[in-house]
Design a protein around this nucleic acid. Structure first.
Length: 816
DNA sequence: AAAAAAG
């Protein structure tokens, strides 16, 4: 239920609507008491407001007009993140963002307000309506209030008044934005939770509170000690409040039983999957499944590129070492693919390499020679890298062994040492780009970059796996810019030109972050990028497209949307990147991604990147990639990682308390929860005990998502509770602890989540909480991830917790 | 379960 509501946009809808309407609307709502919902609307509202102005026909202009004027006086400022701003520049012509900027500014002022405004704030609810016409208000009116409410963080500062305020805060809750999920709780839990709060004051002994800012920590721990006593009153409340839990547990319980029933289903889904984890299945499968896989192959011909494929198989590729296999391939070869792992060792430094090095490269010219599929096929494709993907020779015995261990792609290993002495310039990047990379902090190439940059510059399709934080963005971003530049050499940038490159990411945050890195590189050579993702008004994006951009970075939904609206034309796209490629090949993503790739120019270059690149991507590789070269970095196993992994086996009823204690620390902490509701709840829970925390998940409007992430990045809060939306790609400096409040189900998820820490050689720690029942599953997962982590039984207050919350020694210290 | 489009 909750979910269905969400899309309907309990939140978003509300956020946008009140905006144009008079403030009254929102004030009334708030005064009404439930109103907590408004807070969310605020930020969303900004955008909504803008949208209305840009394109909305109706009332918007009126309200917007005057304000706009007013705001114009103020300089355009930071409502948008740096990268967004950049995008704005391009679309500026649309309109000045000043009104919003104003709001942003006032937000910044907030902290300063401490003493004077307090009273005002308390009356907040009742006063609101009346207030709106105050002298200050007009500026602040809609934007600030709500925003402030969202911030659990402000709370702590409010030393004296806080308690009461907070209670109100909670009482509003029910009405709040999460209404969608909450509904179930609404009657039963609220009361319960209030009691919880009501205890609070008693607990902390009001007198302590004010001092809290410094003394808090100890106090909080005491809190932990109180817990046990509370057991009778509170526990019930908490249990109810985890209404989801039961469901989850059932899920866990089902698993084992499922083994027979469900597997089949999954197999159908990904025909390759089965090959994976369950060695025991293997034997049986050999006969049963093969057919299935063949079906898969038979699809091939049907596909749009079937024709190319055929030609290829006829032996266009004499030069290719595996050419002999090719012809046979159509039906029989597939099996070979399974064996791909075994080749590994033999391969990497094979004789193939040398051949490739000099001859192929130059051939690829973007101008005349625009990567046409045929051309590529004809290319003296030396390398035999294709074989990397579909490695032929292997025995079934080996096969099985390898598959059980891991489901990796065969890849060309790059020795880290090879990187020594290599510079970006020597890899083939132009001066401006090299300089910009240096400015970005990338003075010399990382291993993965050294490996892929020449390949990409040569125009080859590339699959690359580099572990989290190893510099993949630059690995594809820099050469992509270079290629686009080359292709347009001599041409002037036309107005309304079609994009030449596209980069797809699974989340908006990641798209944003990619742009943050790639935009400067592009700009340094006079190319433009723009972000195309959902959750924000289209106008700005469409505006940028109209003016003409060279590189698009975004998420599938909005991109497809704009394509369908004919506002985006990918027919000139010559380079397409799929970041987090394996994830993009999962159920809900695959098809949109395929449709988008089909829109790109025929023969466009495709680059697939991920830290966990496995067979799952074959769905894209088979259709879109030609002779991909596959790369990974040698010696990049978890043992060489800078991340320490720990597993805490706990009682379920202790979970909240243990989390409180773990999060009570210095340093940035990222907490992963399985559901949006639980993520939100945890953020609240932490805020309620005085630890500023924000959340990041799909239930938040984009403005809040962006802002909350920024708050962690900037250090305004140290704790972010997120769903898996933050599992991949997101880079925040100095997250030294990742806590998995819910253990992931998949090893890849584990790797990505834990990859939010220990980036670029820094140290980090990952703590996963599980219950006793889950130990076995956890073990299996760690095995697949090839991670060694001790399991420890832990109860609230144990020293282990304190140790884990403590500082992790730096890499240097460890060596010493 | 989560993510990805929405006026």
């Amino acid at each position: 239920m909750p979910k269905s509501k969400k899309p309907a946009g309990g939140r978003p809808a509300k956020n946008f609507e009140p905006r144009y309407g008079e403030k009254k609307t929102s004030f009334h709502d708030r005064a009404r008491g439930g109103s907590a919902q408004k807070p969310g609307s605020k930020s969303a509202a900004h955008r909504g407001y803008r949208a209305a102005e840009d394109g909305a026909p109706t009332s918007a202009p009126r309200t917007g007009g005057p304000r706009t004027g007013a705001s114009k006086t103020g300089a355009p400022k930071t409502r948008w993140t740096a990268s967004q701003r950049a995008g704005r520049d391009e679309a500026r012509s649309t309109r000045a963002p000043s009104y919003n900027d104003r709001a942003a500014r006032s937000f910044d002022e907030r902290p300063a307000r401490s003493n004077d405004e307090r009273p005002a704030r308390r009356e907040y609810n009742s006063e609101r309506p009346a207030r709106s016409f105050g002298s200050d208000r007009p500026q602040r009116s809609n934007d600030e209030r709500p925003a402030r409410r969202e911030y659990g963080n402000d709370r702590p500062q409010r030393s004296n008044d806080e308690r009461p305020a907070r209670r109100e805060y909670n009482s509003e809750r029910p009405a709040r934005s999460f209404g969608s999920d909450r509904p179930q709780r609404s009657n039963d839990e609220r009361p319960a939770r209030r009691e919880y709060n009501s205890e609070r004051p008693a607990r902390s002994f009001g007198s302590d509170r004010p001092q809290r800012s410094n003394d808090e920590r100890p106090a909080r721990r005491e809190y932990g000690n109180d817990r046990p006593q509370r057991s009778n009153d509170e526990r019930p409340a908490r249990r109810e409040y985890n209404s989801e839990r039961p469901a989850r547990r059932e899920y866990g319980n089902d698993r084992p039983q499922r083994s027979n029933d469900e597997r089949p289903a999954r197999r159908e889904y990904n025909s390759e999957r089965p090959a994976r984890s369950f060695g025991s299945d293997r034997p049986q499968r050999s006969n049963d499944e093969r057919p299935a896989r063949r079906d898969y192959n038979t699809e091939r011909p049907a596909r749009s590129f079937g024709t190319d494929r055929l030609q290829r198989s006829q032996g266009d590729r004499p030069a290719r070492p595996y050419s002999n296999d090719r012809p046979q391939r159509s039906n029989d070869e597939r099996p070979a693919r399974r064996e791909y792992n075994n080749d590994r060792p033999a391969r990497s430094f094979g004789t193939d390499r040398p051949q490739r090095s000099t001859d192929d490269r130059p051939k690829r010219e973007y101008n005349a020679d625009r990567p046409r599929r045929d051309d590529r096929d004809r290319r003296p494709a030396a390398s035999g890298n294709r074989g990397d993907w579909n490695a032929p020779t292997r025995t079934a015995a080996h096969q099985q062994h390898v598959d059980v261990v891991h489901d990796r792609l065969q890849a060309e290993a790059v020795q880290a040492t090879v990187v020594d002495g290599v510079t970006f310039g020597s890899l083939g990047l132009g001066e401006n780009i090299v300089r910009t990379l240096a400015d970005l902090g990338a003075a010399t190439p990382f291993a993965i970059q050294a490996a892929t940059i020449p390949e990409i510059l040569a125009g080859r399709d590339v699959l690359a796996r580099g572990r989290t934080g190893s510099g993949k963005t630059i690995a594809f971003g820099a050469p992509l810019v270079e290629n686009v530049l080359k292709s347009g050499a001599g041409k002037k940038r036309e107005f309304g030109r079609k994009p030449k490159a596209i980069i797809l990411a699974p989340t908006r945050e990641l798209a944003l972050q990619l742009d943050r890195t790639i935009q400067p590189i592009a700009r340094s050579v006079g190319l433009f990028t723009t972000q195309i993702y959902g959750g924000v008004p289209q106008a700005r994006q469409v505006g940028a497209l109209k003016k003409g951009v060279d590189i698009i970075i975004g998420t599938p939904g909005r991109i497809e949307d704009l394509i369908n609206q004919r506002k985006l034309d990918l027919s000139d796209v010559m380079v397409a990147v799929i970041d987090e490629a394996d994830h993009m090949c999962e159920l809900g993503f695959l098809e949109p991604v395929q449709r988008i790739l089909r829109e790109t120019a025929d023969g466009s270059q495709k680059l697939l990147f991920s830290a966990t690149l496995d067979r799952e991507v074959s769905s894209l590789v088979d259709e879109f990639l030609v002779e991909p070269s596959v790369h990974e970095v040698a010696g990049e196993d978890q043992a060489s990682s800078t991340i320490e992994h720990r597993v805490l086996v706990i009682e379920h009823r202790d979970k909240a308390e243990i989390l409180d204690q773990l999060v009570d620390r210095e340093g940035k902490t990222l907490v992963f929860a399985r559901t949006r509701a639980y993520a939100e709840m945890l953020a609240e829970q932490f805020a309620n005990i005085g630890i500023p925390a924000v959340s990041l998940h799909g239930d938040l409007n984009q403005a809040r998502r962006t802002r909350n992430l920024e708050r962690l990045t900037s250090g305004r809060v140290n704790v972010l509770v997120a769903t898996d939306v933050a599992a991949r790609g997101i880079h925040v400096d100095d997250i030294d602890l990742v806590i998995q409040a819910d253990a992931p189900d998949e090893y890849k998820t584990y790797l990505h989540r834990s990859g939010r820490t220990g980036r670029a050689g820094k140290t980090g720690r990952v703590v996963t909480l599980i219950t006793r029942q889950r130990q076995r599953r956890m073990n299996e997962m760690l095995e697949r991830a090839e991670i060694a982590a001790p399991f420890e039984n832990v109860r609230p207050g144990d020293d282990t917790i304190e140790e884990l919350a403590g500082r992790m020694p730096t890499a240097a210290e460890i060596t010493a």
